[in-house]
Every structure is written in structure tokens, then in C-alpha cells.
Amino acid sequence: MRRVFALLISLGLILFFVNSLSILPEYGNVELSKVSNAYINKSVNGNNEKVKFGESKDLEDGAANVVTSIVVDYRSFDTLGEVTVLFTSALGVGLILHGFKRKTYGRLPNFILRVSVGILLPLILLFGVYVFVHGHLTPGGGFPGGTIIAAGILLLYLSNEEFDLSKTSKFVESYAGSLYIVVGLVGLAIGGVFLINFLPTGVVGDLFSAGIVPIVYILIGFKVGAELSGVIADLYREG
């Protein structure tokens, strides 16, 4: 009986959504809004001239990846808030799952796991660092880079009995978060706006371009990686 009612309710919801399709644009035929056009041409204050790869210089924001320039530059205050939400949830996990000892099995992990972690872990960490250092040129950035590093830390936890990172992760996380705010305050002192891009932005497509975007993304990468490995460390303790 309960299942029938649940099925009816969810079918009604699906029908409601399908009905509301008429006010949505057709799939694949969306028009770019004015805001998106301004973000793509990287001139929110200017006159919307076209950007060309490898030639355009000294734009508002020099990141070749438009998504990165929205996340870290134009809507950076938003990202600061989201990083704070992530910090709060990691703090909540630490508060709820209080415990002191790291969980042990009393026997060594699998031989294949132990050996292959030694080979794979440097590659995984290197890939994570690559993803967030090149966040303004290629797909990726601080958020996926941080999670890739956290996945590497999870592998370390699985393969090593004595490994414990919780103190280091708290240290790295708090310093990266504070440095993000310090970058914003420096922008406030130089340009008059919190988190303004105060460094020269360079040519679109160079590794050393885009002003503060790579710096902020590296900080976000460290912060997200440290927070998620802290969550894993908390789940590994026994209370």
C-alpha cells in the first residue's frame, strides 16, 4: 500500500516537471545571457570585445578556462562562502565522531596493496597537483585536485597501519584558508575591492598568467584536500 502511494506521488512529481518543460528553453537551443557573454569576453566593465587565444593581453582576468575565471575571479566571494561551508561540515564530522585511537586490524594489509601504493601514490599526488596548478588552462582546478589528493591519502590510510595525518591536515587547512582571506585583504588594500585581481594578468594561455587565479586555486586545492583527508581520518578513528 505504502509503495503504491509513493509511486503515485513520485509519478505526479515527474508529470509536474514534464509539464513545466514548456516554460524552459528547448534542450540544446539555449541563448547565452548577457552576463555569460560578459564573462566569456572577460569584460564585465568594458565594451565586450572578443578575446583571442595567445594574443589578447591585460584583460580583466587572464584565465583561459572561463569556468575557472568565474569561480575564482568574478564570483570569488561566493567560492569563499562555499569553502566555509565545506570547512563547517568537516568540523561537524570531527565534532560528532570524536575519538582518539586510529582503527587497526591487528594484521598487515595485503602485500599487493602495500607494494602498489608505493608505486601509485606519487603518481596520484603528482596528478592532483598538476590538476590544480593548471586549473586556469585546462579542465580541473582546486576542487577536483583536492579530492584527487584526498583519494591518495585514503589509499595511504588503507595500506599503512600506523599512518595518521589528522594534525597535519588541520594545520594545512587552517593556513590555506587564512591565506585565501589574506589575498582578499591585499586586494582590498591595493584595488579597493575585496578579492580584486591585483596582479598583472598577462597573455591568455600562458602558465604564468591570470594574476591571482592560480594562487587562489592552489590555496583552494590544499584546503579541500586537507579537509577531505581530515574527514577520512575522522571516519577512521574509533571512539
Binding site: 578556462n65 569556468v67 575557472t68 590538476v131 579542465p139 580541473g140 582546478g141 576542487f143 577536483p144 579530492t147 584527487i148 584526498a150 583519494a151 585514503l154 577531505l228 574527514v231 577520512i232 571516519l235 577512521y236 574509533e238
Partner: peptide, 26 residues
């Protein structure tokens, strides 16, 4: 949307499963 794809690949396939299984084991 390659940015979202790489994030979802590392989060959804890696960490979500890991967090849920660690909680289940606990």
C-alpha cells in the same frame, strides 16, 4: 562540461563511496 566531469569522477566514484563504506564499516 569537462570541469564538472573531472570533479564528479573524482568525487562521485572515489570519495562518496569511500565515505559511505567507511561509515558502514564503523
Amino acid at each position: 562540461a569537462p570541469d564538472v566531469a573531472i570533479t564528479e569522477a573524482s568525487v562521485g566514484a572515489g570519495l562518496t563511496t569511500a565515505v559511505l563504506i567507511l561509515a558502514l564499516r564503523r
